[in-house]
Design a protein around this nucleic acid. Sequence first.
DNA 1: TGCGTCAGGGTTACCGGTAACGTAACCTAG
DNA 2: CTAGGTTACGTTACCGGTAACCCTGACGCA
Lengths: 331, 331
Amino acid sequence: MKANLEDIAKAAGVSKMTVSRVLRGGTGFSDDTRARVVKAAKELDYVPNRIAAAFGSHHRGTLVGMCVPRLTSGLFGHVLDGVDRALSRLGYQLMIGANNHSAKEEEAWIRQVITWRPAGLILSGRTHTPGTVDLLRSAAAPVVEIWDLTTSPIDMSVGFSHFDCGAEMGQFLLRRGRNRVGYVGALARADVMGAARLEGFAATLSRAGHPLVACEILHDTPSFYAGYYGLETLLGSRAKVDVVYFHNDEMAIGGMAYAQSVGLRVPEDLGIAGWGGMEAASILPRRLTTTVVPTTAIGKAAAEALVARLKGEPGQDVTVVPTRLEPGATC
Amino acid sequence: MKANLEDIAKAAGVSKMTVSRVLRGGTGFSDDTRARVVKAAKELDYVPNRIAAAFGSHHRGTLVGMCVPRLTSGLFGHVLDGVDRALSRLGYQLMIGANNHSAKEEEAWIRQVITWRPAGLILSGRTHTPGTVDLLRSAAAPVVEIWDLTTSPIDMSVGFSHFDCGAEMGQFLLRRGRNRVGYVGALARADVMGAARLEGFAATLSRAGHPLVACEILHDTPSFYAGYYGLETLLGSRAKVDVVYFHNDEMAIGGMAYAQSVGLRVPEDLGIAGWGGMEAASILPRRLTTTVVPTTAIGKAAAEALVARLKGEPGQDVTVVPTRLEPGATC
DNA sequence: TGCGTCAGGGTTACCGGTAACGTAACCTAG
DNA sequence: CTAGGTTACGTTACCGGTAACCCTGACGCA
């Protein structure tokens, strides 16, 4: 039914091996032979069989696995986009999965994906189970950990420091004269990276003598809703705050909506800062104070680091992709 | 990582075939044999090789390909999530790609992905090149077309009618007493589905005797920015409008930001309607008038239809997942 | 006792490529 | 003219599973 190399070989009057060489763009055949083989392949509607190719050859195929915390995150959509563009241009295929911020789910996903003998893996975050680390070591495939930078990666790392993001925003808010600072977050399951931002943020404030006066962490997904109700809860408590740092921009925008709904002026009555650099945040009536994360660039850099390693080119193990604090107009 | 069935067989004192049967949960062996095989497999850290399995068996593997217009779309993030959850639970792997609203890029992607002999494919939209149709027919894999419903699918279809979405919104706006209607869209490359909404919308208005009085279609991605500047351009023209229908919610929110920036009251001075059902749209100071699309449900339904077909269970070829018009407070 | 049946395996032949090596014809230099 | 290298292929042996078929002994039963 489906044509294979043998069929092409017969049609072109050569051996299977020659067809294989021609179709993979190798050498060792005449232009005439190449033409006959290509013609036969086209006429027979040959569809290459990468399963067989990957099986027969002993080196890695063209499959790359990527695991993100949530497929529904706007930021990771851009990271995926960056990875996909870079990889598909180079002939690699992307296999994706989501781990819901759970290292155990990540391990389960990896256990599945390595049965396909991927050429490489891209993981999000630096927190993995011991089982994952063993698995990756024995899989002997290149691994890029993205998003949260680690100075001692399993293999390679591309991203930035969430701790530093929080610290930088803390300093910025203090410089703007805000010193009664609140935080509203949402650590769905165990978003360690959001937690790292909070740590850096709180540590900076404490060192400056103005520790956090209020902190509300919802057990919810970090969405507009959560920001809205999170701010409501925070303001309902006794603590007086003059600025609130949110887990991300979506929550910050939700918070702004709440502030507006109760007549609080931003930034006069209340400062608001987010994180992430959502498009929406830059076109709001007042541009949101936030940290812009170069999502697509991270994806692209991760894919390129992986491919460089696959091709045996030298590459650096740790690639820093810097974030940028956008002062905005809400603080 | 080196262990294979042969190694396990030797360690357990049985044949390779028996190991294969045990590990796949078949029958034809004693509990004692099973225990020995499982123990040996665990001790040797056996990692199954799906490449070899897919190659050796003549039926389809557990790989599912999915192609979306854009990975950066918030809506498709949710669709992907729905698909991924449903598929990974059933032991399938997801291979993704983006076609940037281009049927030619879709064909190129399919040409790549079928070399992996996927068990099934999920495509977005109903517009495909002739080459794609041939390819799919010869691949003989189940195909689900999602997002825009088609009554004559290549194989299966899950979604709703974009034309009807536009028509419904047109009727709604007319009932609300708006009759000087504008439209702001962004047909990046060739977003046929957005175009279908516009068609349904414009046709309904025309039939009611109040055709579109202004229409601005940007050649840009349908983002907040595009909505902001699109509305600016539209209002800069001579035509007076009392309501504007946007390509999607992101653009509508951008439009609201523009309206607010020039002192236009919504909905008093200008009505605004979107499409999609973004989370953000429901928490804005005024809840956006829009069409809520059950994104996750579509993804889930698509995955389930595909798996049902793969298992040979009877399923319907066309599954309608209805949208819901959310009246909101901006019209 | 003879025979059928069935659980519980083992044997063998592939699947469609690729790697490694073999080889005939031709070319070139000394 | 011939040794040695190169070009352009062909041959063979796998890769790690799976399908289809074969085999054997224990047991039931007439």
